[in-house]
Design a binder for these strands. Sequence first.
DNA 1: TCCTCACGGGG
DNA 2: GTGTACGTGAGGA
Length: 748
Amino acid sequence: MQTTGWLLDLHDHPHQGVVLWLMAEDGRRLRLHQPFPVTFYAAGADSRLQALEEFLRAQPHTPALTYQERRDLFRPGLVSVLAIHVAQAASQPALFRRILQVFPELDYYDADLHLALRYAALHGTFPMAHCRVVSTEDGLLQSLQVLDSPWELDPPAPPLRILNLRPDCDPQHAQPTYISAVYEKHEYHLSLNEERPLLVNLRAILQRHDPDLLLTAYGDTWLLPLLIKMAARQRLPLPLNREAGRGVLYKKEGSYFSYGQIIYRGQQVHLFGRCHIDGHNAMMWQEYDLQGALETARITGLPLQVAVRTSPGTGISSMQILTALRNGILVPWRKQQPEQPKTALDLLRYDQGGLVYQPITGLHFNVGMIDFISMYPSIMVKCNISPETPRPAELGRSPYPPGLVPQTLAPLLQKRVALKQRALTLPRWDPRRRRDKSLSAAHKWLLVTCFGYLGYKNARFGRIEAHEAVTTWGREALLRAKEAAEDLGFTVLHMYVDGLWVKKEGCNQVPHFRPLLEEIALRTNLPVTLDGIFRWVAFLPSRVDERLPVPNRYFGVFQDGTTKVRGIELRRRDSAPFITRVQTEMLACLARAEHADQLTACVEQAVDLLRCRLRDLREGRVPIEDLVVGKKLSKELAGYRVPSHGALAVYQLAAQGKSLRPGQRVRLLYTRGQPRVHAWDLPEIPPWDALDTDYYRTLLLRAAAAILQPFGMDERTLEIKVSEDLGQQLQLLNYVTACKPLIKFEPP
DNA sequence: TCCTCACGGGG
DNA sequence: GTGTACGTGAGGA
């Protein structure tokens, strides 16, 4: 029997090797299976390998054993390894764990690989791949042909059947009363008060629509565990899985360190034969939605359920593993060395990082913003930087064949560029635009992390010297760009890692910057782009000392009216929505000025707007939710030496028996008196007059002053200007005359 | 003034 | 199944 369709998921089976789920073009859902033996390797002293051989011969299901010569990326020549061939993929992890206990001193390869990656490397598959399969009546897979590739821009869309499940409120905040189940145009309300009807109805919905994907809110951390408990209590079967006779797979909650901060990931519930995604427990869901999630799965080779819940680091690592497997390179077992504290010398040597030039603070007109496109990945590909390749001698070129890391990155970078080019030609209404944006966001994260992964001790294909080479060439590229700009008569206002801000008398249109772009491309061999031309941009000084510039704190308006902002309150995730909103509104006010001579009027409007919002605050017209701030917990409650606002709120929750883990965000309101905060997830919401509106007022004034500082209005001036007290207004006059006059804007 | 804690980045 | 380091800034003793 021949069938064409899309590969949904794949998992192991105790006797049937691997089970594949296919969404057939004719609407059927096929369960296919195929024997799938796997091989892993051990290397080390001959005597110990012989001991391992004897150990394995004594095992109940003796695996086949052969000696082979294979390539380890980190060693010259070939390595002698004992290949261990396991007939059933499902039994490999347990066997490896037993071996590891007895022979911890050996080196292992291909020993801890995700089944999906092994299968993908062997058969060229990936999640959502369009395939043609031949199978027997009872589902034995005889042949499989992949019809598309993860690098296509518009692959045929898989006909995913999606069932949405969500409670009527956040279960952490309040007690939900019903669940809504939505499948296309069908909507069902399932009351949580009556367990049996709920289960019976949900079962009917699952059987009627047979969804491929359960898209839930809080499904991992609350809903699915609850449903499973109910089903057990009522002794009613609930077919969440398609695969019969298999329970769901729980993965424990945990906090881990990544990107310089603690990340919390809640418990997970994975299904078999169906996928489950909890939008509140998926890494990047807010960034790239379902399309981005599908793209991540397609290009990393990780099953959809796994891909959405893991960090981009795991994604990029999977891509490298695929490259290695396909090239017959051994994949080292994940080294689990704990991070050792670095000495000062190490830090000096390795971590020079990106180049930063302090900005010239204040307001500038007609500023070009020039960016290297995906700078670090481009350097890795163009200079061929990889753990096994020699250190490059030149920027943007390499005489050697591409190494593992550049090989992995090149198609990804290429697809990203193709999508960006297409974005310039697609009309605004084209639905592909939105999709391309999601794909782009998914790619961006993988590209960003691949650089860090080079320098990560526990990465399988990491090497600190390679990491260092990337930053070295990055600094070199930025320096050459600066020289190019200055040689062509531009003033460099600011540089930050992969971007520079430049201006030159009479340069206010894209063509004026073209010779500079070409010169930079010529001198660096790296792709470079003009991000835009700022009508105006303001680089802010330090708040501690107004005379000092600080990098990457700025805001400006491009010629097309869009704004770009870094470092100020509206970019911070611990600002209250109210503060973010007003600061954004004020900026939009300033952005309305098409010419410099309209700025003064716009500044006045922004101040009026601020007055208005302060009055809203004073008179209680701000929705209380807009005053809630989220603070991330960096440690266990007991670890706090100084109780931060976040920790204070967690104390309150702990008293109610609600606990939060490091990496989770605690939501709170600022209140008058002690304690200064009120946790938002407490049962009662405080009355309006308990709120510390004075503090919110301070926060808002501070945020407003950040926006208005470049226009000559400091916090004190602003404070007086917006106060409704006549005496204070008089003070303002004195203060302003005593200090400096408001800046006059000279049209450039 | 010093210490602790939280945040950003990429687009 | 997890890039690191660093600088800025706020709050409180």
